[in-house]
Design a protein around this nucleic acid. Sequence first.
DNA 1: GAACGTTATTCGATAATGTCGAATATGCTA
DNA 2: TAGCATATTCGACATTATCGAATAACGTTC
Lengths: 257, 257
Amino acid sequence: MIQSIDRAAQVLSSLQGARHLGITELAGLLGLPPSTVHGIVKSLKAHGLVAKEPGGNRYMLGPALLKLSNVYLDTLDVRARAMRWTQELSRRTGLATRLGSELFDEVIVIHHNNRPDGSEQMPETGLSIPVHASAMGKILLTYNADAADQLFEKPLRSLTGDTITDPAKLILQFAQIAERGIATEEDEAVLGESSIAAPIADRNGSVIAAVAVVLPSSEWPPEDNVLNVLRETARNISRELGYTSWPPPVVRRPADD
Amino acid sequence: MIQSIDRAAQVLSSLQGARHLGITELAGLLGLPPSTVHGIVKSLKAHGLVAKEPGGNRYMLGPALLKLSNVYLDTLDVRARAMRWTQELSRRTGLATRLGSELFDEVIVIHHNNRPDGSEQMPETGLSIPVHASAMGKILLTYNADAADQLFEKPLRSLTGDTITDPAKLILQFAQIAERGIATEEDEAVLGESSIAAPIADRNGSVIAAVAVVLPSSEWPPEDNVLNVLRETARNISRELGYTSWPPPVVRRPADD
DNA sequence: GAACGTTATTCGATAATGTCGAATATGCTA
DNA sequence: TAGCATATTCGACATTATCGAATAACGTTC
């Protein structure tokens, strides 16, 4: 691990949390001398990854991130292929749908379809949710034992009264999830919001993403039809990626690094 | 400039251009030994800024960028304040609107409102357009002489037959733009698409962003009303940011670094 | 299915490079 | 306007990244 790159990433991560920070504040957070931090920030700024806040002398994240992120989304093969299927899923169930991918201990939403009822809704692409509190996260953990192991090394954060923070309970769920190819979550991330997810596998059978439908908890449990359509969607996307059998088996794969 | 951070940023930028690259390819692009590049990529990967493409041994941009970018957008004060005004602008003109900010020699779209006619439209947030070929870019260049100087050091790229690539012609436009507080562009970035932009100033009178309306070139020229509403929108946003007079004067400001 | 070529990855000695403290400049506050 | 806090520059030093060589993994061809 290259020290200065590691530190640069920490700077970005700190700014992600705090939005605006001065050099001294950053130095405090990272436990480094201000002059060192200044050098790092200066380098990041030269590439637009960090910007000076207008009219102040604090720093914030920079516009280059927006461009990079846009290219990132374009690069994702799953996303491009899944889009038409999730739209169909949304239409057939009348629910909002999400496509999610793993980012350390969170699931990040890489595509989102609004509920087709035309109500005012936020764009959710880019949203991140702790893995253990999301249906998509449970799918990803079920199929990635290494990630689960790592996750359970630290205590799990509770987001609502219903968040499951006991690893043992989650592990019990994983077994069922593997069998059914479906994970659920009720009020575990956001009160009043529940979701159901299914795995997306690529041609090697690796689960690389998850699809979910999101519904108000007041409409829980969803009709069986919703489950079937969701499962079918996940299967269709996987098929398009070159994977045919269903559901994908849970196998411990060597972490590629 | 810290060398390894600079190189890391170059890696991101290369991946932005090429989508997928192996270590050797990257090493070729940057003119570095593969082992060096490998170390950099490994460090970036540890933070999710870069990811290994599923099933291959090439690398691509990573999901952490999406999260960072989302926070970046949330951080932008202009964006939050401008949003309701641009929505109103879109409604009153019946046109798509954009909010743009400068990123080196491009304008990056930080917010976008669809044409309210309900037609199928792409989300344009994150889109980037060369400054010299966009109305928003001309606004930003008019108010940032340093950026213009830098831009003119290299020959300008032509995007359509109508792109203005002669610095002298652009400089002539800048004078008019400063006077009117309005910049235009006809088919200069995308054939069949034209736009009109106005400056957004913060409390110091620095022009930090631009608003634009985009219309099919077939509807050019727009009614006077469109110009007036656009100008009014820019003024309202600027007022909300604490700047009152209009249009903002062009003054050469010291580059803050 | 085996053997080659290609590409990724690891390792360690070297010296180039980032680091950090002190000095200076800048900007904010009272 | 003075004083303080914060950002920024500078340069000597030693840590740290670098790069070549060796190894491992991969994919491809016969």
